[in-house]
Nucleic acid binder design. Structure first.
Lengths: 230, 230
DNA sequence: TCAAAAAAGAGAGCACTGCTCTTGCAGTGG
DNA sequence: CCACTGCAAGAGCAGTGCTCTCTTTTTTGA
């Protein structure tokens, strides 16, 4: 990441990056299922066994790509948010949602890798959690600012959920009311439900004008967390 | 499906069923990625090439499993709906949502197969569309009945979405107002966003009391389509 | 009834995969 | 200078999807 100590370490980082680049290319072209270590090695002019010096297994390569994908998506969300910084919170919410959708449409296989079925054995390593949180943090930031400025409409939470709601608010979104924490979390999952359905073909024959449909649905999500359109 | 004409046709159906059963077992145990034709054949005591008489490719076997999974999920939804037939529409809505979640938790790999990333090349054949619609039809039925009985709260749709909303209502849910059609479709996608996030580990470290959280979120979805709790 | 046709299974084989192991080469640090 | 370590190469193993050919069995139609 910083200055490499020796020429050796530098070369290692370059090769590692080259492997990831080529793997990303194959991922984008064919999908995770067809990503082959041997093909990556072949394309890089090295023998397949050499690649195992850099990634001990195919799953490790995939994990690296997953983290990069989360970061790429998170950056897209943050950029969109920064670009809309002057707009009202509800508008910024929609802008971020649209950025997520746009990124997903532009990188379908990467999106499938991170929000589709978990491809490797089963559990994503905990390394993936921080980059995965970036989109959520942007959304939380919007809601928090709106709350601090003028408060939010709150949807009451049933008594049976109140303790969990308080825990969620305290641990994940300190400073926000527990009802909002619950609504936020639900909206976050629902956002990716909308994106996933569009991307994975579930809207085929159902929604035609998907962009407008999404914009409206994202606005409704904003409404659900208590944001109001001016 | 009906009476088999000859002993041959009968045998063929039995073998086909046995292949699907064994494949389903392997799918449930290891996931779609590790489902292997050769392993299925081995387990059935036949040679791998013989299996190609029944399914021309691995993708065809997967497609058959996909259809079965959609039907199984649809049946779970229909059963839950039938069991709650005396309850108010909003309650039935939640019951169906909970049935979807329950089925998904009980059949994670099958759920991943149908609502996760599309595993084969890319596009699911159109054969999968009717079974895939069963859950949606149950939900539409609930909403339609509620609408016919007492009407529904409607969330206005922006002008830019109005034509698409009308088209969706006319083609997919005749008799329902276009605003409701839009809200229904969004809720449908959002439901699977909630289920998918829980199933694919996105709620790890975020939501602990997932059952209660889901019940509340499902109730909010019902609210979003205009259903009211008595 | 009996031969032709269709269907099914068996087996070998091809090209590919992830991964391991051993061997040889080339930079690195004492 | 020389031992050490990191790296690459190659062979090889077990597994995969899929195709092709050959044999056996069942169905069919004249």
């Amino acid at each position: 990441m910083t200055t490499p100590q020796g020429a050796r370490a530098r070369a290692r980082m370059e090769v590692t990056a080259a492997i990831k680049d080529e793997a990303r290319r194959q991922l984008a072209a064919e999908g995770a299922a067809k990503l082959s270590l041997r093909a990556v090695a072949r394309e890089l002019g090295m023998v397949s066994s050499a690649l195992y010096r850099y990634f001990p297994s195919r799953d490790d390569l995939l994990t690296a790509l997953i983290i990069d994908a989360y970061d790429s998506l998170g950056e897209a969300a943050e950029t969109a948010h920064a670009a809309a910084v002057d707009a009202a919170p509800a508008q910024r919410w929609v802008a971020v949602c649209e950025a997520v959708r746009g990124w997903a449409l532009a990188h379908p296989h990467e999106y499938a890798l991170i929000y589709g079925s978990p491809v490797p054995g089963y559990s994503a390593p905990d390394t993936t959690i921080p980059p995965a949180a970036r989109v959520a943090l942007v959304l939380i930031g919007i809601v928090r600012e709106a709350f601090d400025r003028r408060g939010l409409a709150r949807t009451p939470v049933p008594a049976e959920l109140a303790p969990e709601a308080r825990r969620m608010a305290a641990e994940l979104m300190p400073g926000l009311p527990s009802e909002v924490a619950v609504a936020m979390t639900a909206a976050w999952a629902q956002l990716f439900g909308l994106v996933g359905f569009e991307l994975f073909g579930q809207f085929k024959g159902v929604v035609e004008d998907r962009e407008r449909f999404f914009r409206h649905a994202a606005a409704q999500l904003a409404h659900g967390v208590g944001l109001v359109f001016p």
